[in-house]
Every structure is written in structure tokens, then in C-alpha cells.
Design a protein around this nucleic acid. Structure first.
Length: 710
RNA sequence: GGGCGAGUAGCUCAGUGGCUAGAGCGUCCGCCUUACACGCGGGAGGUCACAGGUUCAAGUCCUGUCUCGCCCACCA
């Protein structure tokens, strides 16, 4: 279809419909050429600094709605501050994402019929670097399409040379302080990744399981053997091979008799003699009130074992297979195979009392969703006691503020119940532990925790570090408040002596319209790049901003992006009208407002100027308060209903009247320009494109550095 | 088990004690009115989850109940 082109002003032609495809690429190039994404190039004296660090996306994956939402938020903040005359830095980068990235490359290998062990460590790491070079920056490239104004010259990667140095420095600092220690502990273990995981790296999945009631024969000393049993209930019969006790609640009268005489239990299948003990951790109401204790493969049992000095017998290996210390017929079986066989064997012995259906939540690896095993393993830990206290104090004293405030609770809850941080991982991709003879790597989050200062050059004392630390706002999702935010806070204080950011904005999570999680594998995800293609980047951004409220979730409706697109078109056409009317007007940028203030005004003039003033104030405040949805609504209502519906209509007759003609034209132009400035952080492309075409003298090179309206 | 959030039009949501409760999308009717049919004008559509209470006044504040969602916790 042919586009109608109307000649509107000074030979400038605007099509009837706004077409983002003709604008976005070229406008982004204009911004890059201006150099103003880099704070060092910004014009004028800018004493105040405003810094945002992009939460580094993993080098795996591609852009999803969460990234798009968060990038929109940060770009709105940074563009407004830049226009307000601040020296603004938005620093981008990517995270090496240890397990996640290694998994992606391992999947590739699997297609070639190979495992990481076939390749060996050196070659695997090489493959991952190749992969990173090829795909690692996809998300950053996609963010450019969204219009983000990051300083690309400062782009960081968590395994850059300098970043590696920072990680090493931090580790050794803690090590020298005696806060890092090695210990044999029962840890969360992913048998697929073959690595330990921290508690925060677990996810939980509902599982339809069984609860098995098993007879454990009792042997009482100095009395004739009677056919007495204790019945224990368990969801994991295979772990019984490693049982070292049976525990009951101290108050449980049912089992009192077993403590009167020296009594022990003969563990079925193993024929091992194990004690019966009392512990408060046992809930008398669950199952039979008697619980088998497998310290090597259960965290609670491990706690009990420490208290009662019970031995650990590990029967499951690193790959989730039964070890050599179990009876021959179970050796080498997977956990599930062993479970089936053990239940069969117990049945033969008449030891199974009953089997109940039982639904429960089981932990899975957050990266590959494999069921977690608990097993004893030698790992490195970071003592959390002092660091947690420091992190808590910073928020209590208001040095870091959460928006919305209620998320402080998530933070405190975790820190109040914290355990030492298991920082070693048995994967190959990551920062090596900088001690002699150590082959493990560090938890990915150990390096992510340093993002606010390692990106600025620390441990070197750089100019950037001095100027841009601490940052002002961290915008992030609630699921990494503890995994990442808390750890950045204590790291920042420990190494910089100051919190890494003043405000934490916890943005909503984007769900599907029906409230499901957006997930590629479920096919419920919406690709923001498709939205940009179909509706344009500005429409996508505006539609997203529109939906940002204090709620924890956004049920994403494409309707809002449609609305954004229509709004773009409205802005475009209002511009066509204004330019048609103001073609011959000669005004200087800086004089526009002044000449209006000094003139006689009609009631319609006064009304629109007053409404504009109100809009400026409320939008400015709403952005400051992270109320992006409200700001978007205010702008929409003002522009569409006050300016277009009312003032533009009135202006048609005011322009016919010679007395009000000139004044009306100036007001049209003034309101349009001011609206463009206010809209720019939300819709940078269309506003910049229009600004470039406006019939005003002495304009700035780009709208991006125009002064924010007061 | 503990905590947090939500429940308002067909759908997704605004509504920060005070006119007749609003928007976007959808829907119905009429308009190519010279900025815009991605538009303009008009209409239908709501017991504001439920039950009490406070107040001159409650969608909004308080108490309780129900439903949904999220987070945390060692229920085997």
C-alpha cells in the first residue's frame, strides 16, 4: 500500500502514519554518533553524577520480557537524569554465568555424542569461550533495538582480565581474614552438573511421591528377643542403607519403653546395629513419629547427627548412583532403581507395612532442574556472620532503601537465618579458586557480588571508581534479592567502605496474560523482539511502562503495546498538525516559553498551560518514585485528551482570528516540544525523530540532551 | 506452618476518605469533519470477593471470612 505523504512544513514531509522501521535504526546511530551515552562526552558542567549498573544478563539466553521491562525502567531513569543535567553513566555488561553457560555448551556436545569428560577441562573451557564470542552479546545487541542509552565503551564481562583480578583480590582478602575455610559438609549436590549448590540455587518442584512405612526390628539387651518393631516412614527408602540411627521426639510416650532398657535396632537389608535416640527436631505427628536418620543424605538428619555424634555413611555418589559400600545387588544403581529394588526386597522380607501416596516438594537444580541429592563433600565456605550483620545494618539505617519497602522483609528474613556460604563449585567454567592445588571454581554469584565496583576498575583506584561509585539505583527482579542484591551490599561495604547503591527498585515479574510463567520450553514466552518488530520499540516500551505498578506481577497484555502504537501515531499526527500551523513561525528554542509568559492569553491557552505545568510536576515526581505506570497514564491523558482533543480543536478557530493567531501557534509549538521532552524517556525514538524536524532555531543536536522541563 | 500481595466493566488494570467509580483493549451505533479511520462522536456494560465495624461521608480505614498468586521454613 502506498503511504500518503503530506507536505507539512519547510519542505519537511511526514507520512500520515508513524513508521518505526524508518526511524529507529537511524536514530540510534545518531545517538551513538553524538557520543552522549558516555558521561565524559556530555556537554556543560555537570557536577552531579547519576549511575546505574545494568544487571548483567547471562551470556546464555536471549532477551526476554523481564529484560525488556527492566531495561525500559533503567533507560527512563537515566534519560531523565541526563536531561536534568546530571553526569549520567549507565554501565552495561554480561555475566559468565558458570553453571548455566557450561550447561548450554554441554548440551551442544551431547548432540555430538560427547560429554565434557571426553573433551577434558582445557578444551571445554576453550569451547565455552568460542561460544561466548559468538553468542555472548546477543542480549546487549537486542537491548540496543529497544533504544537503551548504555555507555557501550565501558561494557564489562565478569571474566575480563581486570574482573578476574578483582575476584582473586576479594577471595584472598577474606582468606587472610580467616573468613574462608574448607570443610566436609553435607551439601546440596546436583548429580547432573556434578557440583555443589548453595541453598539459593535450589528450586522446588511438586512431586507425586510415596510414603513408605518400614518395619525396623528392635533388639533389647538382656531379654529374650521378641518380635518387636519400630515402624519408620520415609519417602526415600534407598537412603536407609546409610541409616545410622532412628530418632523420636523426646516427649513421645509411645516410644518411652525403648529407652528403659538398652535397646538398639537392626537395620534391615544391612543387618547393621544402630541406636534409637531422642531429638526435638522429630515431629511426633508426622508418619509414625519415628524417623530413620541418614546423616549423609539429609540436611536435618545431618543436624541431628552432629548433635548426637552419629557417624556418616554415604551410600550415594556424585552422579547419583549407589556406592560400593552397599550390598552387591544395589551397587551402581541409580537412586530410583535402587529405591524400586529395595522396596521389592523389603516386601519379600515382610518389612513393608504400607505405602501411601504422598505429594511433597522436592529440591531441583535451578539451572538444569535435576533432582538434588544431599551428600557429604569437601567444600569452601565463606563465614557469613559479620557480613550478614553489615548488610542488615545498611538497610536498617536507610543507607539502602527498597522500593516497594515490603521487599526489605525478604532481605532480612534471609540474613537473619543465614548459613555460611558454600562458594566452591565443581564445574570447569568460572573463576578458579586462587589457592595452590585447588581445582574448583567459585560460585558465579561470588563474582556477581562485586559488579558495582569491579566494573569500575577496582582493585585499581580508577577515576571511574571515584566518580561513579556508589551507584544510585539498582533495578532488579525480586527473585535475586538475596542471591545477588544482599551479596553486593556486603561486598560493597567490605571493599569500598560504602553501600553499592542507594535505592533498590524491585520491579514486577512479567507473566502471561493468564498468569503463567513465561517460559520458552512451555511455549508461553513472548519475545520482546517480535513486539518491537510489530509495534515498534517506543510502543513496546510505553506499553510496558504503563503496566508497572507496585504489584508483584504483571499479567502481560499485548493490548497495552497496541495502545502504545496508537499513541505513537497520535503524537505523530499532532505533530503534523502543529508543523502545518507553525511552518512560518520563526522562534528560537530558548525564547519560546518566555514570549508566551509575557502575552495575553485566552482561557483555553491558560488551561492548557496550566495542565502542562501540572503534568510536568507529576511526571517528574512519579519517575523519581518509580511510579512508571502512573507517569505513563498522566502523559497519555494530557497529550491525547487535553492537548489533542481540546486545545488543538480550539486552536483551529483561534488561528482564524488574527488577534490570537500568532500566540496560538507559539503555544501549540511550546506544548508539543515540552511534551516531547517529557515523553522522551519513555519513547525515545519517535520524540527524537520529531525533535529533529521541528521548525525551531538554536536546537540542541539531540533531544536526548535537551533540558528537562521545570 | 509463617509472611507478603491481589480480588473493581467481557479481558488486563488505574483509582493516595469527598461530585454520577475510570482507562486501555474488546463490543454496539453513527461518521473518510481538510493532524490522525492506528481516527472522531455517541452507547451498552460494575451489589468495587463476602460479612461486620469506624465516619457526616468507605472501592479507599479497621476486624473477620473466602478465593487466587508469590516468598520463606529441616515435616522425613
Amino acid at each position: 500500500m502506498m503511504e500518503k505523504i503530506t507536505k507539512v512544513s519547510n519542505g519537511v514531509k511526514l507520512s500520515k502514519v508513524y513508521n518505526p522501521k524508518n526511524v529507529e535504526g537511524k536514530t540510534y546511530k545518531l545517538w551513538l554518533k553524538s557520543g552522549f551515552f558516555n558521561p565524559d562526552n556530555l556537554p556543560g558542567k555537570r557536577k552531579k553524577v547519576f549511575t546505574i549498573l545494568l544487571p548483567p544478563p547471562n551470556i546464555t539466553g536471549s532477551l526476554h520480557m523481564g529484560h525488556a521491562l527492566n531495561a525500559t525502567i533503567q533507560d527512563i531513569l537515566i534519560r531523565k537524569k541526563r536531561m536534568e543535567g546530571l553526569k549520567t553513566l549507565w554501565l552495561p555488561g554480561t555475566d559468565h554465568a558458570g553453571i548455566a553457560t557450561q550447561n548450554v555448551v554441554e548440551k551442544q556436545l551431547k548432540k555430538e555424542g560427547k560429554t565434557r569428560f571426553d573433551l577434558g577441562k582445557k578444551e571445554l573451557i576453550e569451547r565455552i569461550w568460542q561460544w561466548k564470542e559468538k553468542y555472548g552479546d546477543i542480549i546487549l545487541e537486542q537491548l540496543k533495538k529497544l533504544g537503551v542509552s548504555c555507555d557501550w565503551s565501558r561494557t564489562c564481562f565478569t571474566m575480563d582480565k581486570n574482573y578476574k583480578r578483582a575476584v582473586k583480590e576479594v577471595f584472598l582478602h577474606y582468606y587472610k581474614k580467616g573468613w574462608i575455610y574448607q570443610g566436609e559438609r553435607v551439601v546440596n549436590w546436583c548429580p547432573r552438573c556434578e557440583t555443589s549448590l548453595s541453598d539459593l540455587e535450589l528450586e522446588y518442584k511438586e512431586e507425586k511421591g510415596k510414603l513408605y512405612y518400614i518395619k525396623y526390628p528392635v533388639k533389647t539387651q538382656n531379654s529374650k528377643p521378641k518380635a518387636q518393631n519400630i515402624i519408620v516412614a520415609t519417602t526415600r527408602p534407598e537412603t536407609m542403607l546409610g541409616d545410622t540411627a532412628v530418632a523420636v521426639n523426646p516427649k513421645d510416650k509411645r516410644y518411652e519403653k525403648f529407652f528403659k532398657k538398652k535397646t538398639s535396632i537392626i537395620l534391615p537389608l544391612m543387618k547393621r546395629e544402630i541406636p534409637i535416640i531422642k531429638d526435638w527436631l522429630v515431629d511426633p505427628k508426622f508418619g509414625t513419629g519415628a524417623v530413620k536418620v541418614t546423616p549423609a543424605h539429609d540436611l536435618r538428619d545431618y543436624q541431628i547427627a552432629l548433635k548426637h555424634k552419629l557417624p556418616l555413611i554415604s551410600v550415594i555418589d556424585n552422579r547419583g548412583k549407589m556406592k560400593k559400600n552397599v550390598p552387591l545387588s544395589y551397587r551402581g544403581l541409580s537412586v530410583l532403581e535402587a529405591r524400586e529394588k529395595i522396596v521389592r526386597d523389603l516386601k519379600k522380607e515382610g518389612k513393608i507395612v504400607k505405602i501411601k501416596d504422598y505429594n511433597h516438594r522436592i529440591p531441583v537444580c535451578y539451572r538444569c532442574k535435576t533432582k538434588i541429592e544431599f551428600l557429604p563433600s569437601k567444600q569452601w565456605f565463606l563465614k557469613m556472620e559479620k557480613l550478614a550483620k553489615v548488610a542488615k545494618d545498611a538497610v536498617k539505617k536507610g543507607k539502602v532503601k527498597f522500593y516497594p519497602k515490603r521487599f526489605e522483609k525478604t532481605y532480612f528474613d534471609w540474613l537473619d537465618n543465614i548459613r555460611d556460604w558454600c562458594i566452591s563449585r565443581q564445574i570447569w567454567w568460572g573463576h578458579k579458586i586462587p589457592l595452590k592445588g585447588e581445582t574448583d571454581v567459585l560460585d558465579t554469584w561470588f563474582s556477581s557480588a562485586l559488579w558495582p565496583f569491579a566494573t569500575l576498575g577496582w582493585p585499581k583506584k580508577t577515576k571511574d571508581l571515584k566518580e561513579f561509585y556508589p551507584s544510585d539505583v539498582l533495578s532488579t527482579a525480586r527473585d535475586i534479592i538475596n542471591l545477588w542484591v544482599a551479596r553486593m551490599i556486603f561486598s560493597g561495604i567490605e571493599f569500598m567502605g560504602e553501600v553499592p547503591f542507594k535505592k533498590v527498585f524491585v520491579h514486577p515479574i512479567v507473566l502471561t496474560k493468564t498468569g503463567q510463567r513465561m517460559s520458552k520450553s512451555l511455549g508461553t514466552g513472548i519475545d520482546p523482539m517480535n513486539l518491537i518488530k510489530e509495534y515498534g520499540a517506543d510502543a513496546t516500551r510505553f506499553g510496558l511502562a504503563w503496566q508497572i505498578t507496585e504489584l508483584q506481577d504483571i499479567k502481560f497484555g499485548e493490548d497495552n503495546i497496541v495502545m502504545g502504537k496508537k499513541f505513537c501515531n497520535k503524537i505523530w499526527n499532532a505533530t503534523r498538525f502543529v508543523m502545518l500551523q507553525t511552518a512560518k513561525l520563526k522562534v528560537k528554542n530558548e525564547k519560546l516559553k518566555i514570549t508566551i509568559e509575557n502575552s495575553k492569553l485566552t482561557s483555553a491557552d491558560k488551561k492548557i498551560l496550566k495542565a502542562l505545568d501540572k503534568t510536568i510536576k507529576s511526571v517528574s515526581k512519579d519517575i523519581e518514585d518509580f511510579q512508571f505506570g502512573r507517569a505513563a497514564r498522566t502523559l497519555y491523558n494530557f497529550f491525547w485528551h487535553e492537548f489533542c482533543d481540546k486545545y488543538i480543536e480550539v486552536s483551529k478557530s483561534q488561528i482564524l482570528n488574527p488577534k490570537t493567531q500568532n500566540q496560538t501557534r507559539k503555544i501549540l509549538l511550546y506544548v508539543l516540544v515540552t511534551s516531547l521532552k517529557l515523553l522522551h524517556p519513555f519513547m525515545p525514538f519517535i520524540t527524537e525523530e520529531i525533535y529533529q524536524k521541528l521548525p525551531i532555531e538554536n536546537k540542541k543536536t539531540v533531544l536526548m540532551i535537551e533540558r528537562w522541563p521545570q
